[in-house]
């Protein structure tokens, strides 16, 4: 059986908010190391890979591998009944028809219990190769969200270029063009504001802004975001969570001229 208790329901609420635009139905794969999820969007352009390590829960128990096939819209309806600060416990049997969710407020004078029906989801699992990315950029997630939003007003796609000068986000549309350059920046007192650029070779790739805008829905999960790029491979956008848990998005580049 599965029993996983989260100190704050906010984490699961934010995870579902972050991925439900991309993916409507997916398996939550539970095993003794935690709860993972991998799913592509309908057009197979983007992929989300999330893992909540067992250490992110207290306690965490999962005796056997269990796949919880969940409609995220339905899960969100149930999660709306949880306050952000509620303690959230997920429970399921070994071959479950439902997942049980319990929300307790901090003073333990309210306990809400819901059963969410599960579904059989036949999902393809993709192997994500370990990649030594040519460029890695860490920046405030709010900054990335702003850049994505501002450029979306001008164009459908953005070219992310990383070279010795730093990193630039450039786009061109019917009304004109835009270009945002970021340089390395270190704030010892506020590390969340840091911009770090590590590059082993210059990279320039073009991506659809629509998907980047979807990824940015995860901004509330982490103050910093990491962009990893290599020429001719998908972009990885990572929001690191506590306890080495993470939510990562992959986006196939636009190809050709």
């Amino acid at each position: 059986m599965l029993e996983a208790r989260l100190e704050q329901a906010a984490l699961l609420k934010k995870v579902v908010d972050a991925i439900k635009e991309l993916v409507q139905e997916c398996n939550f794969d539970c095993n003794d190391s935690g709860i993972g999820l991998q799913a592509m969007d309908n057009s197979h352009v983007a992929l989300v890979s999330m893992f909540l390590k067992s250490e992110s829960f207290s306690p965490f128990r999962c005796d056997r591998n269990i796949a919880l096939g969940i409609n995220l819209n339905a899960l969100q309806k149930v999660l709306r009944a949880a306050q952000n600060e509620d303690i959230l416990t997920l429970k399921a049997e070994d071959a479950p028809d439902v997942v049980n969710l319990v929300f307790e407020n901090a003073t333990a004078d309210r306990i809400s219990e819901y059963d969410l029906k599960l579904m059989d989801i036949d999902q393809e699992h993709l192997g994500i190769p370990d990649t030594d990315y040519a460029a890695q950029i860490s920046m405030p997630s709010s900054e990335f969200q702003r850049i994505t939003r501002d450029l979306s007003a001008i164009s459908e796609s953005v070219t992310i270029e990383c070279n010795k000068e730093g990193v630039s986000f450039a786009c061109e549309g019917d009304i004109g063009k835009g270009n945002i350059k970021l340089r390395q920046y270190t704030n010892v007192d506020k590390p969340a504001e840091n911009v770090e650029v590590n590059m082993t070779e210059p990279v320039a790739l073009t991506f659809a802004l629509k998907y980047l805008g979807n990824f940015c829905k995860a901004s509330g999960l982490s103050e910093q975001v990491r962009l990893c790029l290599s020429n001719e491979v998908p972009l990885m956008v990572e929001y690191a969570l506590a306890n080495n848990s993470y939510i990562r998005f992959y986006l196939a580049p636009k190809i050709g001229d």
């Binding site: 699992h125 192997g127 986006l251 196939a252 636009k254 190809i255």
Partner: peptide, 14 residues
Amino acid sequence: KAGQGNITSFFKKQ
């Protein structure tokens, strides 16, 4: 005009 790549052409089915 640039086309959109597909994620399955980079990551293979397991």
